[in-house]
């Protein structure tokens, strides 16, 4: 299980990187933390002729704040998210989610940008971005563009990222005191990819919920919002009866894939379990 032969390119600046991507983009694949890509290379399932190592580019590993948002560099490692007091304060959903990702040795190397650019439908970070209404910052030789999470994830390992672009950062609206959030996932073993997971973020005014986003992962070819269930929550206070109806709605709109190990019905059922459990937690917190 040895990686096939490939070439390696290590740009030292973002300018170098986007220029080189312009030249080689179609044959290249960006290597960030490599915690998925390296395994695929070893499997001989990734066919890039050039691995484009962005780990040497300065400036992509920082977390800084702007007035209304946190800007998280794409090379920030999961362990960096875990340790960041800014994240804990302004994006607590991420703090809660990141501990579910794999294991310490993987969290020390894996990056938030790598996870988002890969677009693994069972991964935690994409769903969190969706729940938090984050924006992806994408750079090419001509400059940068920002893509909201809603538009970024297109399908199974498919995003709007073009071969000549680098994801340089994500911009996450800062959590206000009114933010409510919850996160959980069901996995057979600690650190496994989720059989189903749910990231919730929204606003609570008193006990009334607003703009709550229910972002599921592990239940479709990409992270998905349960939009009809979300609509039922708008302006409402959580009651057992409402949670029950939201659960039914969520189950109704999830359409997970069937695979030989995990039937679709099971993932769909978990979708209901998760939303009921997490809304139950929110309800207790809001009481």
């Amino acid at each position: 299980m040895k990686a096939p032969d490939f070439a390696y390119l290590r740009p030292n600046t973002l300018e170098e990187a986007v220029a080189a991507l312009g030249r080689f983009g179609d044959d290249a694949r960006i290597l960030a933390g490599g915690q998925t890509l390296m395994a695929l290379q070893n499997f001989r399932m990734a066919s890039a002729e050039i691995l484009f190592d962005i780990n040497w580019i300065p400036g992509l590993s920082d977390i800084h704040e702007e007035p209304d948002c946190l800007v998280i560099g794409s090379l920030v490692r999961y362990a960096g998210l875990e340790a960041s007091s800014l994240i804990e304060r302004d994006a607590p959903l991420l703090s809660e989610a990141v501990g579910h990702i794999a294991h310490p040795a993987v969290r020390n190397r894996g990056t938030i940008g790598g996870s988002l650019a890969l677009g693994d439908p069972a991964a935690e970070m994409p769903a969190c971005m969706l729940a938090l209404n984050a924006e992806m910052v994408l750079c090419d030789a001509n400059g940068e563009r920002r893509v909201p999470a809603d538009e970024f994830f297109l399908g199974l390992y498919e995003t709007t990222l073009r071969p000549d672009e680098i994801l340089t950062a994500v911009r996450i609206p800062k959590a206000r005191p009114s933010q409510c959030y919850a996160f959980d996932e069901v996995a057979r073993r600690r650190g496994d990819f989720a059989l189903a997971g749910l990231a919730i973020a929204g606003k609570a005014e008193g006990s009334a919920l607003h703009s709550v986003r229910l972002a599921y992962f592990g239940v479709a070819d990409r992270p998905v919002l349960a939009v009809s269930a979300m609509a039922m929550l708008e302006g409402q206070s959580l009651t057992a009866e409402l949670i029950d109806r939201v659960r039914e709605a969520a189950i109704g709109e999830l359409d997970p894939p069937d695979d030989p190990a995990t039937p679709a019905a099971y993932r769909r059922h978990l979708g209901g379990v998760l939303v009921a459990r997490l809304l139950g937690q929110l309800r207790e917190r809001l009481l």
Binding site: M1, K2, G34, Q35, A39, F43, P104, A105, V106, R109
Partner: peptide, 23 residues
């Protein structure tokens, strides 16, 4: 060789990492 078993764990700049998931 796919980052699951952990047997290749080494310390890189003070942090444990998978030796099979790094070039």
């Amino acid at each position: 060789e796919h980052g699951v078993c952990g047997a290749c764990t080494v310390v890189v700049d003070g942090a444990i990492m998978r030796g099979c998931l790094m070039l």
